[in-house]
Design a protein around this nucleic acid. Sequence first.
DNA 1: TAGGTTTCCGCCTGTGGGTCGAAAACCTCC
DNA 2: GGAGGTTTTCGACCCACAGGCGGAAACCTA
Lengths: 213, 213
Amino acid sequence: MLQVRERRLQALLWQRAREPFLGAWSAPGGYLDPGETLERSIRRHLAEKVDVRELAHLEQLETRSDPDRNPLEWELATTYLGLVPADVDPVVPEDTRWHPVSRLPELAFDHRAIVLAGRDRLRAKLSYTNIGFALAPPVFTISELRELYVAALGHEVSATNLQRVLLRRGELEPTGERREPGRAGGRPAACYRFRSRRLEITDQFAVLRPPER
Amino acid sequence: MLQVRERRLQALLWQRAREPFLGAWSAPGGYLDPGETLERSIRRHLAEKVDVRELAHLEQLETRSDPDRNPLEWELATTYLGLVPADVDPVVPEDTRWHPVSRLPELAFDHRAIVLAGRDRLRAKLSYTNIGFALAPPVFTISELRELYVAALGHEVSATNLQRVLLRRGELEPTGERREPGRAGGRPAACYRFRSRRLEITDQFAVLRPPER
DNA sequence: TAGGTTTCCGCCTGTGGGTCGAAAACCTCC
DNA sequence: GGAGGTTTTCGACCCACAGGCGGAAACCTA
């Protein structure tokens, strides 16, 4: 479960209350109930930590089956990537906290690899899908969106290019509103929103694309 | 398990010998043994059908958990995409046969969706990885490679662009050999091979890429 | 040698992202 | 009410690269 907080990409972690890895930080999750869907299960376990209605996007990553991943017993884990928009601040229990992905503590099991895999999936999809909607509030300025992209991608992003690329793709549409300038003044920024808040793929990336017509 | 055969992308299917879906075509697979890795399990089950040394690539797709996917009992399935180069013709048992993905028979369970998901993953990765190596024989001409891409992608591909794109990316290297022209004559074609036979990702597709330094 | 076939290669073009700088629109302070 | 500072926006230019085309190259048969 990832969110951009304080200009950094952060992961929601909680401290284990049982062996193995008692006291170690770990990603939220839990066991599957009989007859239950994987997505339903992950939502159920997340609901113990946060209000799942604040989850803007949830997608399956991969199923990990290394027999050594749990030192006590053989178990499989199907991992998911969840994204929370930057404008909400979910209430979380005492044992749960956000950690910058760039500075993770020691994590239980293979959870470090899992969190990093989630970050990488997010970074890749920012390039060829509209997944930014899951990081962004409903309405935002280009500068604000740029900050989110910088935090998630880990490198600078040109506001000019970001605006042009997302507009050309049709991902963004202006709301017509303007944002009041801050203390220092400056031109008031135009507000935008994502046209769709469901995952859509930009097909433009098909190199060797079919001949026109 | 997919292969380009007779200029078409085909899937290896076998006829079920048990209920449910007795007699229906289905993708190869089977149950996981305790303590076993998923990849090891899929290789073990594939080995019952073909020589797994002929498998050039194997990657996990997704884990499906819809409780209705099996009418008899609740079970999960982790699906894989396997690719066989076009130059081998594995010996297969009596109940097993290749079927064009574009004309699949009725399939057991959700196997139709699984096969199509594999095809889609392959198509996507042909654009931004060197996954073509898993479809192609060790040495080939550009025309031969073009046929494989056409079969897998389902649309025309320009040989000029294919050659230029793959050479520029460094995926391909010339072997120096030439292919004897056929009956009708024609200029002898240069032979190429993939520089690497392991999956590598072309990073060029990172839109909003980091600024050049 | 003429005509056919297949492959190869260079040229041109269009698209779209990277970069830069100037204009626009606001502020505060003198 | 200017001057100067700040932030956003927009246009202009560049360049890399894929798509498309046509001709040259290299082979065949008749």
